[in-house]
């Protein structure tokens, strides 16, 4: 399912979070929104998800306009920055949530949750509470939960922000593999250039509510479109 963002603007009071932003995410792509804090990347992700309503512009999933559809109707998988796991539910019930509210039968729920926990390598953790998991495990539960109802698009807000360096490294590679397996159109938000370059096939550099440049990691490094991009990407580690 491709995502099309057309001329989106969003203001919070006098602050312009997004200023006439347009963007295409091809079906099955893995795209990173990269920028400093306050650049509007999270707001754009939340608008794509339907958690915020844009002041102007439209959002399309494939050919279908979803601008005024609520997040509930859009069938997206959203992974929150701090996971937002349901703290009073077990891992099993967290992952099963989307199936429960859709009225699935217990037998099918058990089977589907089993598949997902296998996918995120957390078999045997069904009965744990989120508070009994490490950061990396919580992150994987959040992913399994978001994928449960086979979402049309997968949206991740700073997915590795709260993890330590080693776990972050492992999870990045794992996310790439996972994406290859499930082929769900994925957009992730990050302020970490290394992360964006390693995980995504295309990177969108944002600044001050505008898109500075869109391209593959290679293109961005070879031909930065503006001073900001050159500045922000700086001197990449591996060119030294």
């Amino acid at each position: 399912m491709s995502i099309t963002v057309q001329n989106i603007s969003k203001r919070f009071g006098s602050f312009t979070a997004l200023d006439n932003v347009s963007l295409d995410v091809p079906s099955g792509g893995l795209l990173a929104l990269l920028g400093p804090s306050g650049s509007g990347k999270t707001t754009l992700l939340r608008i794509i998800a339907g958690l915020e309503v844009p002041d102007e512009g439209i959002i399309l999933y494939g050919d279908e306009e979803v601008t005024h559809r609520s997040v509930r109707e859009r069938n997206v998988g959203f992974v929150f920055q701090h996971y937002a796991l349901f703290r009073h539910m077990s891992v099993f019930e967290n992952v099963a949530f989307a199936l429960r509210v859709r009225g699935w039968k217990q037998e099918r729920v058990r089977q589907r949750v089993g598949e997902l926990l296998h996918l995120v390598r957390l078999e045997g953790y069904e009965k744990r509470r989120p508070s009994q998991l490490s950061g990396g495990q919580r992150q994987r539960v959040a992913l399994a939960r978001a994928l449960a109802a086979a979402p049309r698009v997968l949206l991740l807000d700073e997915p590795f922000g709260a993890l330590d360096a080693k776990v972050r490294q492992e999870l990045r590679q794992w996310l790439r593999l996972l994406h290859r397996q499930i082929h769900c159109t994925t957009v992730l938000v990050t302020h970490d250039q290394e992360e964006a370059f390693e995980v995504a096939d295309r990177v969108v550099v944002m600044n001050d509510g505008r898109i500075e440049q869109v391209g593959s990691p290679h293109e961005l490094l070879q031909q930065p479109a503006s001073d900001f991009v050159m500045d922000f990407l700086g001197c990449p580690d591996y060119s030294i």
Binding site: A49, G50, L51, S70, V71, R72, N75, V76, G77, F78, F80, H82, A84, L85, F86, R87, H88, F97, A98, R100, V101, R102, R145, A146, A148, A149
Partner: peptide, 25 residues
């Protein structure tokens, strides 16, 4: 508000969100 938002993004209606996620908290 994150858990409530997560519930809605997973397809819960207002009533399901309140009783299954907000209320226990």
């Amino acid at each position: 508000p994150e858990e409530d938002e997560a519930a809605v993004s997973l397809g819960a209606n207002g009533w399901q969100m309140f009783w299954r996620v907000t209320w226990p908290n």
